[in-house]
């Protein structure tokens, strides 16, 4: 029945952090290869929690998630989890850069988890292919000239783009990005989103990103999944989502 292969399948996923505080309930979601999916919802809707569930960063309360053919909750060892995670790029909401290292070192970190990944801990000891890959990833986000700048000297938009370059450099099958434009002003936000969606399209990378900006979702995603109070409110191709639908997502 499926023409394209299925990278992620959530079945009846539920997550709560304590008794009677369900953050996510009854989530059924499929992500197919080559898609660009936006996950939208207001603050506290559970977007970040859902993204972290996709790569097993916290245990599920109910249901299952199968990512790249493996079910995280059924994987006992860290090694097996690592094997799946190394095919995925993850961009955190607060970027998660190492502040005292240069942009290039941070991008080369994207190679950690690969075979002999320890050489990616710092650009100075990285193999030259990895340094080159790091520089071309920085080039792709137009930050090549900031390669030697320390992360704590970068602006919010630059730091966001370094985080994106770190995800791109490993040439993953899938990138999951949490609010990749949230900390940016509108102009920089659009620029980053445009670069990001073009780069993933050009390299055949599946992209799942969250946003609380309806404009970003409508413009850059092929498909929009709306979360409201921990449940899926709708899940449709973006050309079938009206302005009205979007407004309803953000209304109580």
């Amino acid at each position: 029945m499926l023409q394209k292969s299925n990278l992620i399948r959530c079945e009846n996923l539920a997550k709560s952090f304590g008794p009677d505080t369900a953050v996510l309930r009854g989530i059924n979601l499929d992500i197919f290869e080559g898609e660009c999916v936006a996950l939208i919802g207001s603050n506290g809707a559970g977007k970040s929690t859902l993204l972290k569930s996709l790569i097993g960063l916290h245990p599920l309360t109910e249901g299952s998630v199968v990512t790249l053919g493996e079910e995280f909750n059924a994987l006992p060892t860290g090694k097996q989890r690592q094997k799946i995670r190394r095919q995925i790029g993850f961009v955190f909401q607060n970027h998660g850069l190492v502040k005292r290292l240069t942009a290039l070192s941070n991008v080369v970190h994207g190679m950690l988890g690969m075979t002999r990944g320890w050489r990616a801990v710092h650009q100075a000891i990285a193999p030259s292919e990895w340094r080159e890959a790091g520089l071309s990833a920085l080039n792709a986000v137009r930050l090549r000239d900031k390669a030697a700048t320390r992360a704590d000297q970068l602006s919010g938009g630059q730091s966001q783009r370094v985080a994106i370059a770190r995800a791109l450099v490993r040439n993953p099958r899938l990138i999951i990005a949490d609010e990749p434009a949230a900390s940016l002003d509108p102009v920089a936000g659009h620029e980053v989103m445009k670069q990001f969606s073009n780069l993933t399209k050009d390299n055949g990378i599946t992209l799942v990103f969250t946003s609380h900006d309806m404009d970003h979702a409508a413009r850059y995603a092929d498909r929009i999944v709306a979360l409201k109070a921990g449940k899926i409110y709708f899940d449709r191709p973006s050309h079938k989502v009206s302005k009205r639908d979007l407004q309803n997502v953000f209304q109580d």
């Binding site: 960063l57 690592q82 094997k83 995670r85 850069l97 988890g113 995800a167």
Partner: peptide, 8 residues
Amino acid sequence: ALDAIGAG
């Protein structure tokens, strides 16, 4: 962030 991408 590094744990999430499979670093040991």
